[in-house]
Design a protein around this nucleic acid. Sequence first.
DNA 1: GTAGTATGAATGAATG
DNA 2: CATTCATTCATACTAC
Lengths: 160, 160
Amino acid sequence: MILEEMYRSGVRTPNAAQIQQITAHLSYYGKIEGKNVFYWFQNHKARDRQKLRRRLGRHQQLHLQLHQKDIIKKGFFQEATTQGMDLVGKLETVVTEEEEPMTSAMMGFEHEWMATKSIGSAVPPCCRPLKTLDLFPVKSTSLKDECSSSKSSSCSTSTN
Amino acid sequence: MILEEMYRSGVRTPNAAQIQQITAHLSYYGKIEGKNVFYWFQNHKARDRQKLRRRLGRHQQLHLQLHQKDIIKKGFFQEATTQGMDLVGKLETVVTEEEEPMTSAMMGFEHEWMATKSIGSAVPPCCRPLKTLDLFPVKSTSLKDECSSSKSSSCSTSTN
DNA sequence: GTAGTATGAATGAATG
DNA sequence: CATTCATTCATACTAC
């Protein structure tokens, strides 16, 4: 995929020119607009950041071993030819594992960010998502919805 | 069910903290991750709204005319007979949708796909992608499934 | 065995 | 850039 190729190359926020070129290139495969490309990069980057963030927040300061396999491959640094490419991006690119669509705000702990650019996250794949398990044996009993809601509902009982 | 309880309590988009707590609680019953909870709420709310919207769309002819723009926003054309209907007449033949309630907001995006008029033919932002493009590895099976249920829906609608 | 549905998962699109 | 919404896909489960 062209987009992923470019992303891997370091392109994260292509400019208008870039977008236009990519769009033109992709137009061969079908109808596409510049905004599609734009959104694609936006989402991709955002997702990566989410993963990163979640990773950091998750493994806050558990036990980040320092052994790891060289995550900081200092050899794949190939300038993206464009704007700034966060080095974090490259990191995550290497440690691509799973993702967590957490809505952020989870990093309200005391985790350290130094690992962001120092060493790759030492994430031992100890957890293997078993996929869908029957956490919610919902069948026909749909007793949801009710009450009023809006955005950022805070009236919830946190069951804390 | 914990999740539905919370949902009924008003929790729609739990924060990371909420998710963490719920996840911790549910961990007792089995393996679960934060993203599961996250997705659960996302989907629940989305389907709830979908049902609501569907019903609204169906009854909208009663006394709409007021602010139909908010209702006909999108995703309304798929309305049918709920269940045993021919779902072959409402698939990808939707091309006659040109109305854009956004009007001015449409052009005022915030980026440069249309600002690149200096390069070549700038695509008029009046067209929207019909479906998912080949930007990503799309699957193959086209299982058009509709969500139709006759649950007890009450008031909600975040309407964002 | 097919059809329909419910639901988790993923991503594009949009907004703040 | 962060968050949310809408749509779609894949799969498990049920009913016919």
